Amino acid sequence: MSLKKSYSKDKKTCNVTFSVSQEAAHGAEKVSIAGDFNSWSSTETPLKKGKDGSFSVKIPLEAGKEYQFRYLLDGKHWENDWAADKYIPAPFSHTDNSVVIC
């Protein structure tokens, strides 16, 4: 898993590429991302599967903010990003959410 960030020329937008490696996907056919940026929708933001079996999606986010998120594998299993900027306790479960800082 990885996060790649690039900023717009005016530094107002942080383009984040969220990636899940084939290994981290654990054989999943579909991966989506849910977080603050899409009202925690588990279906709104699917990741595209690459030829190597990895998944990725690029999301433009407002710079200067923190966003919580998690990945959903095959609509069943939630996973954190191993390369998140930090983790914070999830408000409705006994796990942590991943956080990306833009």
Rank of each mutant, 00 (worst) to 15 (best):
F18Q: 01
Y67D: 05
G50S: 15
A28Q: 04
L47V: 12
N15Q: 10
D36T: 10
S6A: 14
G35E: 04
S32H: 02
G53K: 00
E29K: 15
A25C: 12
K11Y: 11
V20C: 13
K11G: 02
S39W: 08
A25F: 13
Y67N: 03
W40C: 08
S54E: 03
V20Y: 11
N15Y: 13
K65D: 10
K51M: 06
T13I: 15
K65N: 15
S54M: 07
G75P: 00
K48A: 14
H77V: 15
Y71S: 00
S56N: 14
E79N: 01
N15K: 13
G35T: 08
A84R: 02
D81Q: 03
E62N: 07
C14S: 15
Y67L: 08
F37E: 07
Y7W: 08
A24P: 01
V31I: 15
S19G: 10
D10T: 09
E29V: 11
R70L: 09
A25M: 09
G35P: 03
E62A: 12
N15D: 14
S54I: 05
K48W: 00
G53H: 00
K76I: 13
E23R: 02
S54N: 02
N15W: 06
K5F: 11
D10R: 12
E66D: 15
K12C: 03
L47S: 06
S41L: 06
S21C: 09
Y7A: 11
T17S: 13
G64I: 09
W82H: 04
N15F: 13
F37P: 02
Y71V: 01
W40G: 04
K11D: 10
I59G: 08
A28L: 07
K48I: 12
S56A: 14
Q68H: 15
G35C: 09
D10I: 13
A28C: 09
A84V: 06
W82D: 06
S32E: 02
K58G: 03
H26P: 00
V57Q: 10
A28P: 02
A28H: 03
S41R: 05
A84W: 03
I59Q: 15
L61D: 11
S6N: 09
G75I: 08
F18R: 01
K30Y: 11
V57D: 03
E62F: 02
A83H: 04
S39P: 00
W78N: 07
P60C: 06
A34F: 11
K49S: 11
